[in-house]
Design a protein around this nucleic acid. Structure first.
Lengths: 343, 343
DNA sequence: TTGTATGCGTTATCAC
DNA sequence: GTGATAACGCATACAA
């Protein structure tokens, strides 16, 4: 038992003294690119391990200007999609030598000045924002060292392309082809009246998807969709769909802003209203969260491959770090239709 | 557009010069406890805001010995329970002025020396481990500055109480009363043969729960439970339950190590085997994840209140920070039975 | 390849 | 209350 309250970590100086070398040598031993005699490095590393020494990242950050920290800003970490995303990114970042710093926006999606200021203090090497209404300009203005990476849906969200002229990198997610395929399939299966189950009202992503679907429906000569107001949650979706049908809504196809809402819709239709899915009403989700393939739902949905997405984001992070002064970087990935049992 | 590659943040010195004060004054202005004339502080804060200045946490960390970083070690961030937990803790930590550092163990639950070393470098003020086989001793030996907080289930996990004599704090989760209530209820509803659907083999938590359930069943004169090998996942659980029943397994009550597995069991029973839940087979979950109340499952389960748990963890973190040399700290919380439709 | 000197941005100590 | 000075632990430019 180490009962003393000391608990201080050994410094490079201690390692140097123990290994009978200079302080700089220790530093070099831990920097792969530094030139040092291999045997000497090995010796130092051995001593360091014995002493349980680790370079202090804070000190290293001050000296090099790199924190090895990447900040992730998410609206609700507990929702399946965000969870999956943070999980994948954390794994990828860990492999690349970065630690993940997680920040949550408030329930209203706001990421206020205070939080931004606070985050900035940690000097993240990169900031990745999934929070759909944390505008890149807001971020770019605040984060002076790192260049923010912004995940967006440009097909119906032109505002994000030029946001105050601030520099930020982008991951563009194309959804048109996948939505087109999904709607064609639903129409072929007999769908005539569509309804749009939205996410949170403030959400840019939900607006982008809604606008895209509306234009696709119009292009096919289908009537404009009914609007069902959701908020990405299961409960609200279930209640809203129940209310919609009871109020006389007659849609035979529901396009949900996310999978969780789609699950709520399916349950409301089946258990609350005694309707059959997909025979009476088809349901389309978005995200392809893990529960989408659970047998009780077996959700037809749109997927953006996690591996593909994290790889693209990591490319953005790395490229920006290699060339800090580069112009805006962009990666593009596309959603895919995953056909299962609800549409 | 700031096209130059500079992007450097203003320092306290710059603020001091602009505000016509000394560097120390700036530091004091940002430290609530420091003594400084209110008007002067306001002035400095105003100038700082204009200059978009934020204290550098790395530098602050070096000077004060506090990083304002709390590390969370989780096995799989994408599973609903962990996601909910990280979400709640991140929110609580953010409110308390800490940033959340997330680390993932590998798929086999391992948190190797390399990762531990790496984490240590960030000097987290506290380390909270949910990874069930990252033993506290392992952690305490590695993390010299912070005292690890360990979440454990002591009723059937005596090994964790004294782990190498290293100092660590504990959150004890009591499950006996809740399990006792659940089993009594299931027995009253007609259950005679129980089966245990386990989590990952290496998991300490699953072992603790299994042992507890076995002893409770024995105490009631019920036969020892059948063992169904799961791994916390939906797919494995569904497959395992299917195989169990097809091989002649006749349990009329399944106790799952977690909710996700319980959902897999329910689906396998209903859709794969045409059995009724709970009439033919009762199913009990653990965790009370959000999906547990989705109508397709309506899972009876054991809950450990999130708010209560995060509050307890925050108390541990704060107390340890206030008194670094204190002896081992412990908080205790209890699981609760949540009765729904599957048991 | 190696060591010396200096700087990174902040807070703590100590005088005043 | 205020300001000078010395840490904090590391990496780098430079000279050797």
């Amino acid at each position: 038992v180490d009962g003393d309250g000391k608990r201080s970590r050994p410094t490079a100086a201690v390692v140097a003294r123990t290994a009978q070398v200079s302080r700089v040598a220790v530093s070099r031993a831990f920097n792969p690119d530094a030139s040092i005699r291999p045997e000497k490095r090995a010796h130092i590393l051995r001593v360091a391990q014995q002493l349980n020494y680790t370079p202090d990242m804070a000190a290293r950050s001050m000296a090099t200007g790199r924190s090895h920290l990447v900040a992730l800003i998410v609206p609700d970490l507990s929702s399946p999609w965000e969870a999956q995303e943070v999980d994948a990114m954390t794994a990828a970042l860990q492999d690349a030598g970065f630690a993940t710093l997680v920040f949550r926006t408030r329930d209203d999606f706001s990421f206020d000045e205070k939080l931004l200021t606070y985050m900035k203090g940690f000097n993240p090497d990169s900031v990745i924002s999934y929070a759909e209404n944390v505008r890149p300009g807001h971020l770019a203005r605040g984060v002076t060292r790192a260049v923010p990476v912004y995940v967006c849906y440009p097909e119906a969200d032109p505002g994000t392309t030029a946001d105050g002229g601030y520099l930020f990198d982008r991951l563009d997610v194309r959804m048109r082809a996948a939505f087109e395929a999904a709607i064609a399939r639903m129409q072929a299966a007999g769908a005539r009246r569509f309804a749009l189950l939205s996410g949170k009202a403030a959400s840019l992503a939900t607006a982008a998807r809604a606008q895209l679907v509306r234009s696709l429906l119009a292009a096919r000569g289908l009537p404009p969709p009914d609007e069902i107001a959701g908020d990405y949650s299961y409960d609200t979706a279930a209640r809203a769909v129940l209310a919609y049908v009871r109020a006389g809504g007659r849609a035979d196809a529901i396009v949900s802003a996310n999978d969780v809402g789609a699950c709520g819709a399916v349950d409301a239709l089946r258990h609350g209203l005694g309707l059959r899915v997909p025979q009476d009403v088809q349901v389309l989700g978005f995200d392809d969260i893990r529960m989408a393939h659970w047998q009780s739902y077996d959700l037809t949905t749109l997927q953006i491959d996690v591996a593909e997405r994290t790889a693209a984001l990591m490319r953005l992070v790395r490229r920006r770090l290699d060339e800090p002064a580069a112009g805006p970087l962009t990666e593009t990935i596309a959603a895919r239709l995953v056909v299962r049992g609800t549409a």
